[in-house]
């Protein structure tokens, strides 16, 4: 599920929730790219992503590439545990270049 809101600075933030996997990759693609098209700057909040696989990662890679190609800025924030596992496995954190905050279990 994806919801859109604005953060304090007025930047659009897309919050992804639940799965980011092959099972919902198609609909996630639609919502991510709809927002990416509308906004020059976009934050994608991965905080509530509780499951992520290669298909999900691919979508984020694609979004990043599209954003760069169109001179837009796209940031990933609030990486969830599930996202970090994949990021670490594929060594892609560097590629995205977004700060990753390591959180305690309580969060």
């Amino acid at each position: 599920m994806a919801t859109i809101s604005k953060n304090k600075k007025g930047i659009h933030r897309l919050k992804l929730e639940g799965e980011l996997t092959i099972y919902n990759a198609a609909e996630m693609k639609t919502s991510i790219f709809a927002e990416l098209q509308k906004n020059k700057e976009l934050e994608i909040d991965l905080g509530k992503v509780n499951e992520m696989d290669s298909a999900g990662l691919q979508l984020l890679l694609l979004a990043k590439r599209e954003a760069t190609n169109h001179n837009k800025s796209m940031r990933l924030i609030n990486h969830s545990e599930a996202a970090l596992v994949i990021f670490n496995l594929y060594h892609v954190a560097e590629h995205f270049g977004d700060p990753i905050v390591l959180r305690g279990k309580a969060n």
């Binding site: 990759a25 298909a55 691919q58 599209e66 594929y90 060594h91």
Partner: peptide, 30 residues
């Protein structure tokens, strides 16, 4: 693979991935 030893470096490549419109989110381009 990680269980058989230590993965010291991974470069993830997705050059095969077409542009956003034609990319099929269910295909693997990795």
């Amino acid at each position: 693979l990680g269980k058989l030893g230590e993965i010291t470096h991974v470069t993830t490549l997705f050059d095969k991935m077409p542009d956003a419109e034609s990319m099929d989110p269910e295909s693997c381009y990795l």
